[in-house]
Design a protein around this nucleic acid. Structure first.
Lengths: 190, 190
DNA sequence: CTAACTTCTTAAACTACTTTAATTTTTTTC
DNA sequence: GAAAAAAATTAAAGTAGTTTAAGAAGTTAG
């Protein structure tokens, strides 16, 4: 449970009892490489904190093409939060890209913690806030920069991810084809 | 102060005393059409809730071109929240597109409310969460759809905004040139 | 260790979107 | 209410990114 307590303590101040109360609501799970953790239209009852490994969250567009919305790795949260909170069936697909160890929490326990542990309200508040900032920057980049520039930003922001994830998936995350990413990489060498 | 109390009550349950404590920390302000509310590199000490009117938030890219990141109108919050919270100078420019009446709250009062009114923590938590969801959907749309499709989504999501805001600004928000938006509109008529 | 499969690269033809520039329409200002 | 300024339209030429297709390199499974 070590990673998660560290993550919580980095964002808020909290007593050890409250921390234990939070940690007690989580279960450990392991997903194999290529295994699907969530599927579109399926029930969503959990969100996840990653201990080790890496996942991608993606959607299908109207032509049935996949688009990677986000990658998540060690010490990140992931899940279909919109569906989890609104109690709808899922809109995202989430797949493990490596063997991935997580801590999961279900909806009942999530709501219990929100009611009983004010520090958890504050922790998730800061989580949401930080995610909001990250997304704001991504929207800004998509509006303002070319694919080659966005690829450079990606490499700088997630230097180790680019070694762990196929270029096909990175291209999809950047909103371009794998062929065009390949061309960008060739041009960078000169 | 009516709009804001309504907005708060729609998102959380709260006592009248706590609501008054929150509302007491705000000031009314009016910005004229075309007036700048925030400028990049300037000090950011306030965030805003809109009573009436409409603003745009934009950045300059490396070529000095403007890009509209977001429009905000009645009953929405706006501001350079990243800079506000991190106590940095601003990265966004915000301009009133109409005469705009707002309630403003400064950083000291914001932090006071977070410390003294647990309901305010919860309220801002839900604000951040909803913004996160909106941004997630926008990223998804930018990855998956053509400019013409994104324009349709925009019209459906903000039907009245398109009458209040110039096409130049809508084009910038969609990440295309005004000329191309003009062509999209012409093709829609046939 | 080899076969089967998936990913990556290259290149040529194509399309969505941009750029430039000129004209028309709308809005602002005095 | 006329003059000036800003926004919208149109069209032609140009460019960033896609599509298609084929071969090379890397990964996975038996």
């Amino acid at each position: 449970m070590h990673n998660l307590s560290k993550h919580i303590k980095e964002l808020i101040s909290i007593s050890d009892e409250h921390l234990d109360e939070i940690l007690g609501k989580f279960n450990e799970k392991v997903f194999q490489k290529r295994e699907h953790i969530l599927q579109q239209d399926a029930k969503v009852d959990e969100v996840y904190f990653i201990m080790s490994g890496c996942v991608r969250t993606y959607v299908y567009d109207l032509n049935g093409e996949e688009h990677n919305i986000t990658f998540s790795m060690e010490n990140w949260w992931f899940g279909d939060l919109q569906s989890f909170i609104k109690r709808n069936t899922g809109v995202y697909n989430i797949q493990a890209l490596e063997e991935t160890k997580v801590l999961s929490i279900n909806n009942d326990n999530w709501n219990l913690l929100l009611q009983e542990v004010p520090a958890f309200v504050n922790y998730t508040r800061i989580l949401f806030r930080n995610t909001m900032f990250t997304q704001e920057n991504r929207i800004l980049q998509n509006l303002s920069y070319t694919a080659a520039e966005r690829y450079d930003f990606f490499l700088k922001k997630y230097p180790n991810l680019s070694q762990r994830i196929s270029q096909k998936h990175i291209a999809s995350y950047l909103g371009i084809t794998p062929e065009f990413l390949s061309m960008i990489r060739r041009n960078k060498k000169d």
